[in-house]
Design a protein around this nucleic acid. Sequence first.
DNA 1: CTTTTAGAAGACGTCAGACGTCTATTGTCA
DNA 2: TGACAATAGACGTCTGACGTCTTCTAAAAG
Lengths: 243, 243
Amino acid sequence: MTKLVGRERTVVARICDGILDLIKTKELGLGDRLPSEERLVEDFGVARPTLREALKILEQDGIIRTEHGRGRFVMAGAALHIERPITTFESVTDMVEGYGYSTTTQLLKLTEMAADDEIASGLQCLSGTPVLRIERLRSEGTRPILYSIDFIKAETAGNAISTIDWSGSLVQILRRRGVAPVASTANVSATLLPADAVKHWKLADFGPVLLVTETCFTAEGTPILFAKDYHHGKYFTFSFARR
Amino acid sequence: MTKLVGRERTVVARICDGILDLIKTKELGLGDRLPSEERLVEDFGVARPTLREALKILEQDGIIRTEHGRGRFVMAGAALHIERPITTFESVTDMVEGYGYSTTTQLLKLTEMAADDEIASGLQCLSGTPVLRIERLRSEGTRPILYSIDFIKAETAGNAISTIDWSGSLVQILRRRGVAPVASTANVSATLLPADAVKHWKLADFGPVLLVTETCFTAEGTPILFAKDYHHGKYFTFSFARR
DNA sequence: CTTTTAGAAGACGTCAGACGTCTATTGTCA
DNA sequence: TGACAATAGACGTCTGACGTCTTCTAAAAG
């Protein structure tokens, strides 16, 4: 599986890391000019096209800026280092852990239903397609901090519904079934908890919530999971870079 | 200013657009294999290193995935097309317009003050540094939808404070002063309007707000603007891709 | 002596061709 | 029939060269 033991994966990746190191170790500051391609080629012992592929990546990432005839310069993006950018795909479970919370997950309700328009649009299937609705609540101690509703096509779970431990990471469950989500389109808004959830599960005084609605895709581009995560406003805040 | 009239800027950019077009026009679907480098080199009439720079960009963007010895494949990222991704830097003014709102901006209060810890951290200056506090309200008709507080160093405005029309786009004002913000680190959370703002400006029943706190940087990496934008929960929702 | 201008140097942009390595397929041999 | 070796296709990297853009400098003009 992994043949990248002990060294970098590719030369290009190694160069990227090398240059990022230069910036991280303050050898290069904001606005500074990078060494010329010729110098970098010498320093890293690589060919120019290879070096340029690496530089293009950094440029694309907003780390450096290129000016024809002048050189390359460390850009604001280099300072825009975000600890846990929301733009990096990760499971809710990992995200919550990353925030330092140790939560318990409670499966509120597991139902099979027909996809309504919103779900069908999220999972890119036809309205009425059988889907699994997984309603869960994560709590830090006794305090609920994340109410979520996940939808997956019923066929994805197959007939393993009853054997699955739904209180674990949904992403991991899917990964084990060979349909690992690797990316998503997401949407964030501020709202309140759904009224029926408040009533059914006694979730009053939850306050403003950060609602993240996302459709997760496999590497092949198949929508595999549609999720609505209601993050307690006091416990969650998301960071990202804009450029 | 613009020497890119009539044609693409660079060959690499032209290739990127060309390949994205292939995907957009459905000539290439999710999971499909791209033509080989050799074929693409022929089709686009470019050299292989040049082509590869373009492909590296698309790979970095999550549009395609590369497998050594197998080829390149259209990835989920290609479907992850977001209309107005929050991860693209733009002024609040442009953002609001992009949402189709035609708002009027009201300058609530303009004060000079000493930076507290939060502001100092945002603008990366010392606590106590003189800053301008620009408190504004954008309304759609009579309905307030965006309450914002912006901070810039007093020295940035210089002695032009009184001559500036603060109801315009702050980003544009800065741009005209030669310190155009081009990127930012941002943070989003769900909360309510600050109590004092509600009281002073009669902003009750605003409901849950999406608070975006961001530090904007110039191309040189100088923090130039620290902003707190309270978006009305019912009127704003932000999209982005995660990968 | 000052100003203008042309040249050179430095740096990025692109092209051309070659070789290595990885994957998958095919065909042969046991 | 099954295992293995050869081969073709595709990406990864290297070498070298030429074009264009920016800047600086030094020579030429005033």
